[in-house]
């Protein structure tokens, strides 16, 4: 790495020689912004050494992500549709759909025909994923943790690996349904790899998935992007 510039260094966390999807946003910061972010991060790590409180570090990383993602994309609409929930949530059948890239053991969607693709391979092929059409995976609400797999080259999956509920809250939804807060939690939930081509999702898949939700008599949906 001799002669590596600071810009090359900060950019290397985004699909480069040091891939870390929680820090890929460094590429979206200017040289000065990234330098300030890293200096402040080191200061906060130094403070946490003595009191063990990582909150300041987590908040700093989150703030860095917010600053780096401050620009909207081309997908803008002047107005949008709105459907009102017909009944209270406690009487409604609620579905869940996430872009987390979860799937069941034995039901790998095998992107690009690749068997047993690893997370590292998915990260390496991110440019292929963003041009691809995703497949929807069914996730039964009671799936044991060891039968639920996740692979997604667009975000840091360490959080969902530690606890699926951080982005695929099937256990929390099940609990709320058991308590009567939700009328019924529609199992299975659904997951797909959200790093995908937008036009087929917008024109073809999303209307198709909406029809499927209607056929399953789902009356409201919780959607979680990552």
């Amino acid at each position: 790495m001799s002669g590596e510039t600071f810009v090359e260094y900060k950019d290397s966390f985004s699909y480069g020689s040091r891939p870390d999807l929680s820090f890929k946003f460094l590429k979206g910061l200017s040289e000065e912004e990234a330098a300030t972010f890293l200096h402040d991060l080191i200061t906060k790590v130094g403070e946490a050494i003595d009191d063990g409180d990582a909150t300041r570090i987590i908040e700093h990383v989150t703030q860095g992500q917010i600053e780096a993602y401050s620009k909207p994309t081309q997908w803008a609409y002047d107005d949008g549709p709105f459907a009102k929930l017909a009944k209270p949530v406690r009487e409604s059948r609620i579905g869940l759909l996430t872009s987390t890239g979860h799937f069941l053991e034995g039901k790998d969607p095998e992107p690009f025909g690749v068997k047993n693709m690893t997370q590292a391979e998915a990260v390496e092929r991110i440019t292929d994923f963003v041009k691809s059409t995703p497949e929807l995976s069914e996730i039964p609400a009671d799936v044991p943790a060891d039968q639920l797999l996740v692979r997604h080259g667009g975000y840091d999956i360490r959080g969902v690996q530690a606890d699926r509920n951080v982005a695929l809250p099937i256990d929390r939804m099940t609990e709320l349904a058991a308590e009567g807060v939700i009328g019924d939690f529609a199992s299975p939930a659904y997951s797909f790899v959200g790093a995908a081509a937008q036009t087929p999702i917008s024109r073809k898949l999303a209307p198709k998935w909406a029809d499927m939700f209607k056929e399953r008599q789902i009356e409201g949906a919780v959607l979680v992007p990552v």
């Binding site: 549709p81 209307p207 209607k214 009356e219």
Partner: peptide, 15 residues
């Protein structure tokens, strides 16, 4: 992706 799904669902009457 999820934004597009939300719009399609609402157009089809699913809040």
């Amino acid at each position: 992706s999820v934004g597009h799904i939300a719009r399609a669902f609402e157009e089809n009457g699913i809040p």
